[in-house]
């Protein structure tokens, strides 16, 4: 006993170091696994509050370009209203997706695993694993959610795997990021028989319960022999302002159905 106490006393700083290092590594490993709820994230009141203050100033500098983008989106939506039949009877149409507008408070795009902080949380109906987009296309999926803030796993993240397809022929694959340029992402697992060329549009596949089908991603930039396709994104991930979070109203139903199938 005496010996143990003397040992602890002699190596107390080393032991403290070991314990704290283990705690840090535990948090790191936990952050690498996708589904666990995380303790260390920026969706809490303190960090969210700080980012909110800074964003109030920062937002001002991007007003012009952001307004331009929103005006373009408005025009596009009005045009699509003109094309569609105005007298559609909406009583027998299902509302499948609901859009919630939000603002990006903090945006990373230079790390290996990038996250965004947005200003909507549980009290606004935002929950984990919801799609995040803007008018130019895909941004990511929500991850940790607090009362008033949420973090978003950007598509520029090692743990972001999104179902995507070629717009013209429905062959689908998985979207991932190699960590190099924030303008380019990669599409894997496209079947051998799929025909595509440089410049083809890639959109989300709608095979998951998170993303609706047909959200814009980017165009084929180049591809290698082993069918790894580089995609140049439509979205400028370095300048994000107003975004939308998409709620899938049928998600619970689909998941319940799939759960009974698995039994």
């Amino acid at each position: 006993m005496q010996q143990i106490i003397r040992f602890i006393e002699k190596y107390r700083y080393f032991l403290l170091f070991l314990i704290l290092e283990f705690v840090a590594l535990f948090f790191t490993i936990q952050s690498h696994s996708y589904h666990k709820s995380k303790f260390i994230n920026s969706a809490n009141a303190v960090t969210g509050g700080f980012y909110k203050r800074v964003n109030n100033i920062n937002e001002f500098f991007h007003l012009k370009s952001e307004n331009e983008r929103l005006a373009k989106e408005n025009a596009r939506l009005k045009n699509s209203l003109l094309i569609e039949n105005h007298t559609t009877d909406t009583t027998n149409q299902f509302l499948r997706y609901k859009y919630i507008t939000a603002k990006v408070y903090n945006n990373n795009y230079t790390k290996r695993n990038n996250y965004l902080t947005i200003n909507k949380g549980l009290s606004d109906g935002v929950d984990a694993e919801m799609a995040v987009v803007n008018s130019r296309g895909i941004i990511g999926t929500t991850n940790s959610v607090s009362g008033n803030y949420a973090t978003v796993i950007s598509i520029l993240n090692n743990y972001s795997l999104i179902n995507a397809k070629l717009k013209n022929n429905n062959h689908f694959g998985t979207l991932s990021w190699d960590g190099k340029s924030y303008k380019t992402v990669q599409l894997n697992d496209i079947p051998r028989q799929a025909i595509f060329k440089i410049g083809d549009t890639i959109v989300t596949g709608g095979k998951s319960t998170i993303f609706p089908e047909g959200i814009l991603i980017g165009t084929v930039k180049d591809f290698e022999q082993n069918r790894l396709i580089n995609i140049s994104l439509f979205n400028d991930m370095s300048a994000l302002g107003n975004i939308q979070v998409i709620t899938n109203l049928h998600k619970a139903e689909i998941q319940q159905l799939e759960a009974t199938n698995n039994e």
Binding site: Y13, L16, F17, L20, E21, V23, A24, L25, F26, F27, T28, I29, Q30, S31, H32, K38, I40, N41, S42, N44, V46, T47, F50, Y51, N106, N108, K111, N113, Y115, T117, T151
Partner: peptide, 24 residues
């Protein structure tokens, strides 16, 4: 000193969603 350094790294991690890499 060790504890404060750990906390400093952790504070940075909180803001940048990076798990515990800065703390470590």
């Amino acid at each position: 000193f060790l504890f404060l350094s750990f906390l400093l790294g952790l504070a940075i991690d909180f803001f940048s969603n990076s798990g515990g890499i800065n703390a470590a």
